[in-house]
Design a protein around this nucleic acid. Sequence first.
DNA 1: TGACAATATGGTAGCGCTACCATATTGTCA
DNA 2: TGACAATATGGTAGCGCTACCATATTGTCA
Lengths: 340, 340
Amino acid sequence: MGKRKGSGRATITDVAEHAGVGAITVSRMMRDPSKVSEKLRIRIEKSIKELQYIPDPKARALASGRADVIGVLIPSLSNIIFADTLRAIHDSTQNTPYQVLIGNTRYDAQEENHLLSLFLAQNPAALIVVGIDQSDNSINLLKEANIPVVQIYEIGPDPIDMSVGLSHIAASETMVEHLLNQGFCKIGYLAARLDPRMERRLEAYRTKLNSLEIFEPKRVVLTNKASSVNIGRKLMRQLIDCAPDTDAVICANDDIALGALFECLAQGISVPEQMGIIGFNDLEMMQAAYPSLTSIRTDRYKIGTLAVDKILQRLNGDETDQKQIDTGFELIQRDSTSRR
Amino acid sequence: MGKRKGSGRATITDVAEHAGVGAITVSRMMRDPSKVSEKLRIRIEKSIKELQYIPDPKARALASGRADVIGVLIPSLSNIIFADTLRAIHDSTQNTPYQVLIGNTRYDAQEENHLLSLFLAQNPAALIVVGIDQSDNSINLLKEANIPVVQIYEIGPDPIDMSVGLSHIAASETMVEHLLNQGFCKIGYLAARLDPRMERRLEAYRTKLNSLEIFEPKRVVLTNKASSVNIGRKLMRQLIDCAPDTDAVICANDDIALGALFECLAQGISVPEQMGIIGFNDLEMMQAAYPSLTSIRTDRYKIGTLAVDKILQRLNGDETDQKQIDTGFELIQRDSTSRR
DNA sequence: TGACAATATGGTAGCGCTACCATATTGTCA
DNA sequence: TGACAATATGGTAGCGCTACCATATTGTCA
């Protein structure tokens, strides 16, 4: 008798003995049934069912040197934006052998680097990271890992491997242009704690307004606190106090936009007549708000789906021609900015 | 030379050789430094640093028969409610060796059962599941697994092992009583696709109103679609059409409550004068809304924290006296129901 | 029909750890 | 100082798979 107690569950050896075949044949049959004759296939399948055999992924990973794991590093677990993409990633891996492992970087490059080391120690099949602002250290780890890597949400000039996202600069410019087209000209900006993508949008707004010589620093209201609807209200209140002639606000995201709307409602400021409001992400609530809120729609579910698609393609050996996918964005115009 | 290529990274054997000790001593030192003399400890630590050694969790798990993994099965990835708890679980496991593995059951008992089998094949250290309505099959798997199991969000009469949550029946009764106390008496109910906890709350509302002989079926508006702010608007519209004399609504969650508020704003129905609105969960936006929205605060972060605490206690060998924790709830009264 | 290729199956060793046991070293007490 | 316990360290085998190679079986063609 062995001196080491196993898990108690059936192993591949049990199945092999039960079916009267070699263990390796069972292994083959599980990974690619076409490599085993029909006769044995049926016998093995029967044994698997009878013994309720479920392969042990960690033994598999140890033996093959590759875990059927896709690591995902996201900056926040309680941000619905990332949750939408996570859902897509889970959905897309649903009928594959791949398991999703989530790491929360808390918007911290060092934490990202640390998690990356931990994840790589598990030989993941692929990795998904958010944004294009990884530390040099992380970039090296990712490149040396020699596995498919997808950067999501933003596309930039020099992807580590593949990327799926959009240009936040272009999106920001579109927001400004839309407001100008609607006749707004004293355009403010509300933003809470900035992530790199928000920073890029804010910067693009500044650049754009500067180029038109209509940029006024007093209309930019920032805080270091995390985004929230309440913060949106506070920022709006502050803006109205400091620059009461402001006629529209670009909000760093939809939560802030909703807060801005509530503050206008509370102060009796009519939207869009006295104040235009535009958000970013187009959360579902933007359409339901009254007045409904204009926003930039970003297809976060699609980003996750495409990221996994790219990864699976590569893992299946298909070289991708397209290393960078621009998922674009769409300005959804609603009441909150419709003046004409 | 070995015929099998390793990962390329340093292994425990490399560290052992480098430090001039046995591999098992390195293993010991990593898991419990106090079991190794200071002399060797320092030497091994130096070697670990120089070789940048990171232990391979899957090899560790295979050898020890137990993975440092806490499995979490949640019904939805894009529901902020679960995200809050997930964040707590991640935060609480941050400085432990445990990794969090998330499964998305999509509110489907069969999928839950399937994921459970897959998770158990990995010998997780513990499991967290949502609610108390697991299938018999799942309950058996969980009991046979012989590991700490925590059911979260709801507490019931017969926990599988441990549970951390609240009584949704009591919460619902509190909502009804609050509305009655505020002078509302024609109380409606708006709900989208029901999960078991929502069902329990709806049922408690029915029972309560029936016992007071003021229950009227026409005031209950339901749909099979998923909860959303837009659905909240639609349900409210429907309620106003079918039962225009309704003077307050209990909403299955905050999204629906926010939608109900917007519909009232759109129709010029004053809140709370003509219509009281109460939500459930107390999302951050409830406070920021105008008028602000009454809701039941549930401490979702704390639920996650306590669940992990209980698990870590048990994994450390401390038997818990308290197998069931009632995290309670708090009715946060705001403008939307404040009549007096 | 024989030579060879293609296909199907299996044995062995090894992935990187730790459980289990053995042994060497140190400390404690009469 | 000797006997024994406590402490520190190490060797070996095994966790449950699969890579790699070997061999048996079948098919194909001149």
